[in-house]
């Protein structure tokens, strides 16, 4: 029964299972053999710098991109081989909050939240109205039900996007950069919502972010993605230990440490310097 799943149990079957995922755009490899399991009821945070492939990974997990190699399973179903109808059946079981909220600009906030309910359920209008009010109350936006997306702030758009994402009471919620572009207080509020949904309703969450404060606040486990490779997947405490510890001399650990701490010196910046600047500029001057 669901009752026992208060704490993520490692032996449980993963709800999301990504295996050896490879994605290339033209000749550029964006995901280079990513493997990741997410277990019921946990919050998995995927971190990484810009262009590390974390958004691409997310898009594979929601079935909006096709990989070159590997598989993505949600609830045991391999998204890669599903027909559109089957994929849509899976899509009704998860929700996603996009970076900008991605509200439909031609509809009011309330209509945005009602849309999945209108399209995918046989519930009557009154019930749907009540559900829309409940979802908006949950994200603290009940008074905005009749406003158009253009009339509300970025933070409100995000909360409205979250209300729409949870319209069908999904089992998994994906968040794409939930705190990007928000002030610290609004960002903390969104984090609290993520934690409430996971803690009280048992929703499984996958969060893609580069905001470390937020990541450490909400994560049960974390994964660090770099240049299309998953460097490390571990419980939050392990990452906290790396962040708070001294540099070890181990390249990978130090790289993670630099990222977590936001230091301006370390393996990440060293790597950028090793790009053959000297040869490059001498060549411009007519060769050595």
């Amino acid at each position: 029964m669901v009752e026992t799943q208060e704490q993520p149990v490692r032996t449980a079957t993963p709800v999301i299972s990504v295996v050896d995922l490879v994605k290339r755009f033209d000749s550029k490899t964006v995901l280079d053999g990513v493997t990741l399991d997410v277990f019921p009821g946990e919050t998995m945070v995927i971190m990484g710098g810009s262009g590390c492939g974390k958004s691409t990974l997310l898009r594979h997990m929601i079935g909006s991109m096709q990989p070159n190699e590997g598989s993505v399973r949600l609830f045991g179903e391999d998204l890669v081989v599903l027909s559109e109808d089957q994929l849509n059946a899976v899509r009704k079981r998860f929700g996603i909050l996009f970076q900008s909220g991605a509200l439909f600009n031609s509809m009011t906030v309330g209509e945005n939240v009602a849309l999945p309910l209108n399209e995918h359920t046989d519930l009557d209008e009154a019930t749907i109205d009540i559900m829309v009010r409940i979802k908006l109350e949950l994200v603290g936006l009940r008074e905005a039900v009749d406003l158009m997306p253009a009339e509300i702030s970025g933070g409100m758009k995000k909360r409205a996007g979250l209300a729409r994402a949870i319209a069908l009471d999904p089992e998994i919620l994906f968040y794409d950069e939930p705190s990007a572009g928000l002030d610290p207080v609004t960002s903390a509020e969104i984090d609290q919502l993520i934690m409430d949904l996971t803690g009280k309703l048992g929703v499984t969450s996958v969060v893609v972010t580069h905001e470390m404060d937020s990541a450490f606040r909400i994560a049960d486990r974390m994964g660090m993605l770099d240049k299309g490779r998953m460097l490390k997947i571990a419980p939050r405490a392990e990452f906290e230990a790396i962040r708070d510890g001294e540099a070890t001399g181990d390249e990978m650990t130090d790289l993670i440490r630099q990222f977590l701490r936001g230091d301006s010196e370390g393996p990440i910046t060293d790597r950028r310097r090793e790009t053959g600047y000297e040869e490059d500029i001498l060549e411009m001057a007519g060769g050595p």
Binding site: R91, F98, A102, N105, P116, H120, R164, A167
Partner: peptide, 18 residues
């Protein structure tokens, strides 16, 4: 085009609307 840029098209697909 604006809907693509603002992720609305992706959002539609994600809520299983073609």
């Amino acid at each position: 085009g604006t809907m693509v840029v603002s992720e609305e098209i992706e959002a539609m697909e994600a809520i299983a609307l073609n």
